[in-house]
Design a protein around this nucleic acid. Structure first.
Length: 294
RNA sequence: GGAGGGGUGGGUGAGCGGCUAAUACCAACAGACUGUAAAUCUGUCGCCUGAAAUGGCUUCGCAGGUUCGAAUCCUGCCCCCUCCA
């Protein structure tokens, strides 16, 4: 989960094992969003090559499919040069799509259709859309909550292109990997999160958000819905005061960390878990040694 | 000293005689997830039993009282807030 020190550990490992980092954080892909996403610093990025960071502007679309193809290219590129790719980040969807080789339905988003369906959901209710999906792809409907309009719409979007959403969800690994997880007890994790949020404010998160706004990026953009950005947005728009905004960021980040454990379960035996203790980093080094040739 | 307002489940805060173990929100806890994913959506949330329907027990400052029945009405006490002196 967030705030456990993934990035700095990855950096250390890369230095020892001749590696390069592939970002697996869904928010660090956006340019100009540095403080709030806890992006590696310029110096860190200069020390070790980082991939898939700062690849789109905040008002550009980004997606799982795009991420996956970029990440695969990065893996190939790094390996071709005789180095070792280290994937670092906590966006579960992205991580597993890459490591498990999800074949993502090759149907790009259809903005017009989505808008149309969203309007329909608003006027006729989400049930209407869901019923339609049940007709077209009952298997997919079975797996999607009728109230989750966003996912119902995507399933419809895919299924209307011919092949069914439910039939296109295939897993076939592209690459081999060893997975390391960092974890700690909840109280400690929440403390670390709170401290980090405090640090972000000190580093100028408010100014960063202001500058994004000044560049013309509005709070309705998906990129601006990220932790830190939307709460500071409410502050800048006068809806809440700064201390309240900061508290919201902390709470929402706790919730995010909990959410991350749904993707990375402690009982998931594909993951090699390391508790955060004094010598965690050494323990991980010893572990990684078994798999990587310097 | 006088006048008024208030004390509700971890927090904020509804309820103001039965439909109430008690709206809602937050926190917390658990879960879903294949082109927005730090998104979107769901469940639990007094205690004990149970897979569940349910059943039992204890709750709305404290102590009494009225009533078939009280968080809701009455009395006393304690505490908090505002205004006047």
């Amino acid at each position: 989960p967030t705030a456990t020190g993934k990035s700095s550990l990855a950096l250390e490992l890369c230095q020892v094992y001749n590696g390069e980092i592939i970002n697996a954080d869904s928010r660090q892909v956006y340019r100009y969003m540095d403080i709030g996403t806890a992006k590696p610093t310029r110096e860190e990025q200069a020390a070790i090559p980082h991939h898939i960071i700062d690849v789109v502007d905040p008002d550009e679309d980004f997606s799982l499919a795009l991420y996956q193809s970029k990440a695969l290219k990065a893996v190939e590129d790094i390996e071709r040069r005789g180095k070792t790719p280290f994937l670092a980040g906590g966006s579960g969807l992205y991580v597993w799509a890459l490591l498990e080789g999800w074949r993502i339905p090759p149907v790009p988003p259809n903005t017009a259709l989505r808008q149309e369906l969203e309007d329909k959901a608003k006027t006729e209710g989400g049930k209407a859309l869901y019923d339609k999906l049940k007709e077209i792809d009952p298997v997919a409907a079975e797996r999607i909550d009728p109230r989750n309009v966003r996912r119902v719409i995507r399933a419809l979007e895919v299924s209307q292109q011919g092949k069914l959403f439910s039939e296109l969800q295939v897993k076939k690994p592209f690459i081999d990997s060893v997975i390391i997880g960092l974890t700690t007890d909840r109280a400690t994790l929440y403390q670390r999160i709170d401290a980090r949020v405090g640090g972000m404010i000190e580093k100028g998160l408010v100014a960063e958000v202001e500058s994004l706004v000044a560049r013309g990026y509005g709070f309705d953009l998906p990129a601006m819905s990220g932790l830190g950005y939307r709460q500071i947005g409410k502050f800048l728009q006068g809806e809440i005061d700064l201390p309240t905004a900061i508290q919201h960021i902390k709470f929402d980040t706790h919730s995010f960390a909990r959410h991350q454990y749904n993707w990375f379960r402690l009982k998931d035996n594909r993951i090699n878990w390391f508790e955060l203790v004094e010598d965690t980093s050494q323990a991980v080094h010893r572990f990684v040694q078994r798999f990587v040739v310097k």
